[in-house]
Nucleic acid binder design. Sequence first.
DNA 1: CCAGAAATTGACTTCGAGGCAATAATTTTG
DNA 2: CAAAATTATTGCCTCGAAGTCAATTTCTGG
Lengths: 214, 214
Amino acid sequence: MKKASTARRGRHASAWKSVVLNREQQFSLKRGALLREAGRAFSLRGYHNTSLEDVAKTLDVTKAALYYYVTNKQEILFECHMMSLDFGDEAMKYSEEHGKTGLEKILLLIDKYVKTITSEMGSFAVLGEYDALESQNKAIIGKRRDKFDRGFRKLISEGIADGTVRAVDPKLTVFFFMGSINWMTRWFTTEGPLTGEQVARQLVDLVEGALRSR
Amino acid sequence: MKKASTARRGRHASAWKSVVLNREQQFSLKRGALLREAGRAFSLRGYHNTSLEDVAKTLDVTKAALYYYVTNKQEILFECHMMSLDFGDEAMKYSEEHGKTGLEKILLLIDKYVKTITSEMGSFAVLGEYDALESQNKAIIGKRRDKFDRGFRKLISEGIADGTVRAVDPKLTVFFFMGSINWMTRWFTTEGPLTGEQVARQLVDLVEGALRSR
DNA sequence: CCAGAAATTGACTTCGAGGCAATAATTTTG
DNA sequence: CAAAATTATTGCCTCGAAGTCAATTTCTGG
C-alpha cells in the first residue's frame, strides 16, 4: 500500500547532495500538502462527498498527479487518521507532563488538542469517517483510538481519586467530550470569525465547570 | 420527488372501508420501517457506507422492492433528517412549556431530546450526513437546523439573563453540546450496555455542571 | 544546453451502487 | 374462484468516481 511512495524516495540519499535532498523535500512537502488539503475536505464535507478531482482542483493539478504521491484514496484517509491520533497522543503526553491533578491534566489535554487541530497545520483532522476505513486499517486506527480513549478515561478516574473531579462516569464523559471535539470539524474553519484559541478557551471553561468538584 | 409515494396511497380513501385503510396503514408502516432501518444504518455507518442492498437485506427484501416505498435514496436521507428535526422541535417545545428558568429549559431540552433519539422509535436519528444532502434538500434542512440552533442559543441567553446560567458564549456552547449529542449516533446502540435514560442523565448532569452559575 | 530522471497529463478502464421497466407473485374484492 | 389491484423480484442499464498507463512536459545536474 505505502510501498510506492517510500520506494520512490530514498534513491541516492547521499547527505552532501543538497539538490537531491531538495527533491525529497519537495516530494514530502507536496505529499503533505495533498494530505492536508484532502483531510481538510474530508473533515468538512466527508470522505465520500469529496472526490479526488475536487482535491486535485484545489491543488491546481489533475487527479492523476495525486497518484504519484499516494497509492489510493484510502491511503490518504488512513494517514490523516494516523496524524490526528498523533496529535492526540502528543496532547496526552503534554498534559501528563505538565498537569499536577487529574482535572488539570484533563483541561490541558483538551486545550492542547483543540488548539492543535484548529491550527493551520492541523486543521485537517479527520475525526469522523471511521467507517470509511477498510477493515484492516480500521483495526489499526481502532486500536489506537481505544488506547487514547482509555487514557482519557484514566485521567478522569485520576481526578475523581485525587478529589479534583466530581463523580462522573468516565466512559460516558469521554464520549461526550470527544463528541464536542470531533464535531468541530463540521463547523470550524480557520477562515471563520473565531480563532482556535477562543474555541479552546470556551470548551475548557465548560469542561472545567462540568467536572470540577465543589 | 415524493410524488410517487403519495400518489400511490390515497386512492379510495373512503373512511368506512377499513380494509383499504389497513392497506394504507401497512404501506406507511412498512415505509416507516424502511426509513427507520435505513436511518439507523446511516447514523451508525454513514450514508455512503450503507448501500440500499444492505438495508434491503436486513429487511428481507430486495433492493428494488424499496423503490416501491421511496423514490430514491436521497429521499430516505431527507425524511430522516426531517424526523430528527421534528424530534428536536418537539423537545424544544416541551422544554419551553415545562421549564421555568433558562437553565431548567436547557436541561429539559437535552433530556427529552436524548431520550427520544435513543428510544427504539427514534434510534435512527441521522444527525451527521448533512453534506450528503443534495443542494435543494440541504437548503431546507439547513434552515430548520439553524432555527433550532438559534432557539437553543436563546435558551442559554435567557438563562444568563435570569441568572441561572453563568456567562458563556451561547453560539459555541450550543455547538459543543450538539456535538456531544450528534456524536452519540456513532457509539450508542439500543443493544449496548447503557440505556438511553442513563446516557441522558449523565449528559444532563454534565451540562448542568458546565452551565449553572454559582 | 543536453540527457536523463521526475513530475504531470489526458484518455482510458473498471467497478460499485443507484435506479428503472417489465414481470411474477400475492392479496383483496366482487 | 377469477379478476383486479397491490406488492415484490429479476435483470438490466447508467453514472460517477476511483484507479491505470503510455505519452509528454518540466526539472536538475553536469
